[in-house]
Structure formats: structure tokens, C-alpha cells
Amino acid sequence: MFSLTKRNAHMKKHRILGTLGAAVLVGSVLAACSGTGKEEDSATTTTGGTKNSGLTYAVITHSGPGDAFWDRVKSGAEKAGADYGATVQYNNDPDPAKQSQLIDSAVASKVNGIVVSMANPDGLEESVKKAVAAGIPVVTINSGLDKFKDFGAITHIGQSEAIAGEAVGARLKAEGGKKAICVIQEAGNVGLEERCKAAATAFGAMENLQVDGTDDAAVQASVTSKLQADPSIDTVLALGGQYAIDAVNAVGESGSKAKVATFDLSEDVVTNIESGKISFAVDQQPYVQGFLGVTTLYLKSINGNDVGGGQPINSGPAFVTKDNAAQVAEFAAKGTR
């Protein structure tokens, strides 16, 4: 689920404005304006003439900006939209108050369905219920397993944090780990906390390490210090692809022999699994969450289907190890796994 970080809005803005400069800024505005029609374009080009069905779906997630995991969710949703000739509008905000406003906006725009990730269900309850009351079908993805039924969503597509966390904890223990740290990259993220808790339950001696996920250098430094401070740590569990890379670097830097395992994939993670620097990654298959989310709404629109029959659908966990890394690598390179 929550793979990555919430980045401070102002920090991101500084970075964008600072590095791109004025000329690129103008160019980007133009590029993105033409991007408005992108979904329709790709709908006709990539699928060899699927007609625009006139359907519009809003995908509203709790992702921070620039998050690799959520980019795969977005890609999956947009691919489904393109395949079905539907327009997919993707928006995100990690603050539940603002995310609920995005849902309200989608309702006001009278979209044909809403896909929403509910990291903090209480904060979205009113808006989601309002959408359902307005007759707009809702599907929850990624997080919100416990509440999707109460709020009236068709189904939930995701990976249970408890199941995945326990599976990872058990596997780490089976691989001979005695003492572990769980690296939390985003302060205040409910799902990350749950993940570490479940892993710790199955593993035993595992403690959390809070790091600043907006700054990879700082993540690496924090993990290095921790490994140097306590040489008995033999396992590092990262909760997102890019933090696994930071952890691998930290292990090298500190001279520790700790094994690294991680939630979520990236191309670099797969490479590191192939070379044995990361023992395994657990993939909840974000592309599936985006793609199936839109697909579920599409089936509701064209055929009145309720996918899942009131039960949640598991998008993972899928383990990526040295054995199947090569096969996954191909898709990771395209940014879809």
C-alpha cells in the first residue's frame, strides 16, 4: 500500500521551480495543456480504434507527489481507461481533508465512477458516502479494506497489510534473521505503521526506525548510523522500493552484514535482487490496483456488474526473489511493476 512519502508541498515546489527554470515552465504548461486530450488520444491509438465510450472515471489517491508506487497505480488506471475508451482523471493528496475535497469535486463534475484509496477512512467517510448517495459507483483500492463495505463501495482491491506484513515477518525469520529494523519513511502514515507491526508480530525482535523519506541521503545516513550503533542487527526491512536502495547503500557503507528485504518494487530493486543484495521484495502489484479499479467501474457502467460480490479482491502479495526476478525485470523497466 502506501509505498512512499508525503513530500512537503513547498519543498516540491521549490525543487520544481528551482531546477526547471522559467523557460521549461512555459514549455511544461503548454505540454500539459495538450496533455488534457491525452487519454482520448491514447484510447484511439493504443487500442486500434476503440471508440470513446463517453465515460469518465475519477481516480483519487492519498499519494504524495512524485511517488514511484503510485505512478504504477496511475499507469494501470490510465491503461484501463485507454483500453475501454473511457477518460480517467487521476488526482492525489496525502491530506485526508484535501483528498475528501477532491472526491467532492469529482461528484460535482458528475463522473461515472470513483476509484479511491482510503488511508484514513474516517477523514473520507462523509465524502465517499455522499458520492454513493449521489448514485456514483465507488471502488476502494490499496487501503480502506475495513471500511469499504460500510461506506457503500462495490469492492476493495488491495493487499491486506496484516497478511502481507506477517508473511514478510515469517519469511525473514525463516531466513535466519534474529534482530531487525523496520524503516518508516513517512511520519504519520497509518498503513506503514500497521505493516511494521504485523511484520514484528511474526518476526519477533523488530524495532521501527523513523526516517525522512523526502531526502534519500538522510534515509541512508539514518540507517547507516543505526547499523553502526547496533551491529547485532542482521535484517533491514524497507517499506518502499527507493528506500530499499538507500538501505542497501547503508549496509555497504556501515560494513554490516545485514540482509535487506522490502515492500514494493522498482527496476533498481529487481536488479539488486538478481545480484543478491536484496533477498526478496513483496509486490502488492499496484498496476493491478489501478487497472482493476477502473475495470470494476467499467463493468458496473456497461453491464451493472458488482465485481467481488461484496468481498475484497487481493492484488497481492506476490513475492519477487532471485528465481523470478528476471521475468519481473522486463515489466519493472517499463514502470508497470
Binding site: K12, K13, V29, A32, T36, P65
Partner: peptide, 17 residues
Amino acid sequence: IVYSGWDSNWLKTFLGA
């Protein structure tokens, strides 16, 4: 920006501009 359906990856850029 949301109502306009612009790609949300550009949100901060639009906002800044």
C-alpha cells in the same frame, strides 16, 4: 486544475505559475 482535468503531476507547476 482538477475540474480542468489537467494531468495532476503538473499540479504544483500550474499552481506556481
